[in-house]
């Protein structure tokens, strides 16, 4: 099924376009030209190739495996470090959620209100205008 999911774009590309041609009764305009598709594929393969290519470039040269940098002295296992107070700290990564900018309680109500007024205004214009 994962395979199906991966190949799905290809399958649907061949299925949908003829479907649409029938639906609108005319030929479907080419929406994304072949040139653009080729550029996209080229960029994709570059992105995929690059990490492996770097490995090849480094081949034969002597590389030193070093422990990663942390905000203090690395304890050697890349998971713990010694902080400025001399104690052990566990390394922890977290995402940035920007609650204060995009928080649900900040954005949700105003946008609901805006959308509701949009609908109300347009519907009243439409219904009032025709009747």
């Amino acid at each position: 099924m994962i395979v199906l999911c991966l190949t799905f774009p290809i399958i649907s590309k061949y299925l949908v376009v003829p479907f649409l041609a029938g639906m609108f009764g005319g030929e479907v305009p080419i929406i994304i030209s072949t040139g653009n598709t080729q550029i996209m594929i080229l960029m994709m393969t570059m992105i995929l190739i690059l990490p492996f290519a770097i490995r090849f470039l480094a081949f034969g040269k002597r590389t030193r495996v070093v422990s990663s940098y942390m905000a203090g002295i690395n304890e050697g296992d890349n998971k713990n470090f010694i902080d400025s107070m001399g104690g052990d700290k566990k390394m922890y990564l977290s995402n940035w959620y920007m609650q204060e900018y995009f928080g649900e309680n900040i954005l949700f109500k105003p946008s609901t209100a805006i959308a509701a007024t949009t609908i109300l205004i347009i519907m009243s214009i439409a219904i009032g205008g025709v009747l």
């Binding site: 959620y97 995009f102 649900e104 949700f108 946008s111 959308a115 949009t118 609908i119 347009i122």
Partner: peptide, 25 residues
């Protein structure tokens, strides 16, 4: 007008909910 309503509401929803999704864990 009906089309305008649908597009406006749809587009607006797309923008706002995408922004809110940033703040969810």
């Amino acid at each position: 007008l009906a089309g305008t309503m649908v597009t406006m509401v749809g587009g607006f929803t797309f923008l706002m909910t995408s922004l809110i999704a940033i703040s969810q864990s």
